[in-house]
Amino acid sequence: MARILVAEDESAIAEFIRRALTAAGHQATVAADGAAAWRLALAEDFDLLLSDVRMPVMDGVALALALGADRPDLPVLLMTGFASERERADDLAGFVSGVLQKPFSMADLLAAVAAALSARNA
């Protein structure tokens, strides 16, 4: 199906996402921070970036902005559990495909990923 880059610094959440995406037939690559995800996104071809907003080194908003300049063809789906971070993410409507509110279920995750991927292919 799709190659998805996951930027998430909490290992338990990253593993949940990786397993859910893999079970749905996607290939998931996990990066522990925004800078590592940015390097991977420039070096490899991904169909979607799924990124936490709050991370060390480079947060998800900075990552979305950097990739908007370097890889404008790569859709970005952000995740956050913080209301203030959601407001920051919502301000990036031109750069992101959506914002997934934490905590989320596997069904919520897969629906958001499907929507972001279908918007890319539209």
Score class of each variant (00 low, 15 high):
113 V>M: 06
35 A>T: 01
21 L>F: 05
4 I>Q: 04
30 V>S: 11
65 L>C: 14
32 A>K: 08
47 D>P: 04
97 S>A: 14
33 D>T: 04
102 K>E: 15
93 A>I: 13
82 F>Y: 15
9 D>P: 12
116 A>C: 07
50 L>H: 07
87 E>F: 11
52 D>R: 03
41 A>W: 00
14 A>C: 12
93 A>C: 06
22 T>W: 08
117 L>S: 09
6 V>C: 05
102 K>Q: 15
83 A>G: 08
95 F>L: 12
106 M>F: 02
26 H>S: 00
117 L>K: 12
84 S>R: 10
39 R>W: 09
13 I>D: 04
9 D>R: 11
44 E>T: 15
96 V>S: 02
30 V>E: 09
95 F>Y: 12
82 F>C: 11
1 M>F: 09
46 F>D: 05
82 F>L: 15
96 V>E: 13
70 D>T: 08
44 E>L: 08
1 M>A: 11
74 L>I: 00
8 E>W: 03
32 A>P: 13
74 L>E: 02
20 A>C: 11
52 D>Y: 01
92 L>N: 05
92 L>V: 07
22 T>N: 06
22 T>K: 09
76 V>T: 14
16 F>L: 15
120 R>E: 09
63 L>W: 09
33 D>M: 04
37 A>F: 13
19 R>L: 15
94 G>F: 09
86 R>G: 14
89 A>C: 10
69 A>Q: 13
25 G>F: 03
15 E>G: 00
85 E>M: 08
116 A>R: 02
75 P>C: 04
118 S>I: 03
98 G>L: 05
19 R>I: 14
118 S>E: 14
90 D>Y: 15
59 D>W: 01
2 A>F: 12
41 A>E: 00
9 D>C: 13
107 A>F: 09
92 L>I: 12
86 R>D: 12
5 L>K: 01
79 M>I: 07
30 V>I: 13
94 G>V: 14
66 A>Q: 14
78 L>E: 12
78 L>D: 06
106 M>R: 14
115 A>H: 03
31 A>F: 06
114 A>Q: 11
2 A>R: 04
18 R>F: 10
98 G>N: 13
32 A>T: 05
3 R>K: 15
52 D>F: 07
39 R>G: 02
115 A>G: 07
3 R>P: 01
20 A>Y: 14
64 A>I: 00
84 S>W: 08
77 L>E: 03
69 A>I: 03
28 A>Y: 08
101 Q>Y: 02
114 A>C: 00
90 D>I: 03
26 H>I: 05
107 A>N: 05
111 A>Q: 15
73 D>I: 00
119 A>G: 08
69 A>D: 11
119 A>P: 06
33 D>K: 08
16 F>M: 15
79 M>K: 03
84 S>C: 07
117 L>V: 05
97 S>H: 08
115 A>T: 04
61 V>H: 01
11 S>E: 14
58 M>P: 06
85 E>C: 09
107 A>R: 14
104 F>V: 04
64 A>Q: 06
110 L>H: 06
88 R>D: 12
98 G>D: 13
106 M>T: 09
86 R>P: 02
57 V>G: 03
96 V>N: 08
102 K>G: 10
80 T>H: 11
46 F>I: 07
111 A>W: 06
80 T>Q: 09
44 E>F: 01
100 L>N: 02
68 G>Y: 10
120 R>C: 02
15 E>R: 14
114 A>V: 05
56 P>R: 12
